[in-house]
Amino acid sequence: MGIFGILDTSGSGLHVNKLWLDAVSDNIANINTVKKTSDNAFQERMVVAQESPDTSGTGVGSGVHVSGIQLGSADGVTFYDPQNPLADKNGNVKRPDIDLGDQMVQMMVAQRAYQANLAVIDRARDTYIQAMGIGK
């Protein structure tokens, strides 16, 4: 952690929440992606966040990082659509098992978390500038 460590810490928060927004946008973009019943359905992308270790020796950690991406169900939802070119002989196709309402809520949470980190960065910057004014 450098001399302006708060910026790096909050920056890691921005990074993770931005990736979460990326995942949500990918999920929503693919919510109508239809597959053959013999293939895997589009799997929901879920960001796994983990705290970063303490690098400064103060006992305070250095933020958060993405430890991996978990995938949702590959079974999807079987949907009867005999007109679809991808339909099997029973007229079924596979749609992803993603709930749009759930994705919208995740998007709101990720966006607010991103904003919260931005607010910390703003406040930290002001604080550093005030500290530089000591003795003026």
Partner: peptide
């Protein structure tokens, strides 16, 4: 890769400059 990466680096550079000048 990330808009915030650049903005944070720029902020750090500007703060470091101000500190050095102070």
């Amino acid at each position: 890769q990330d808009v915030s990466d650049y903005m944070i680096a720029a902020t750090q550079a500007s703060l470091a400059t101000e500190l050095t000048v102070a």
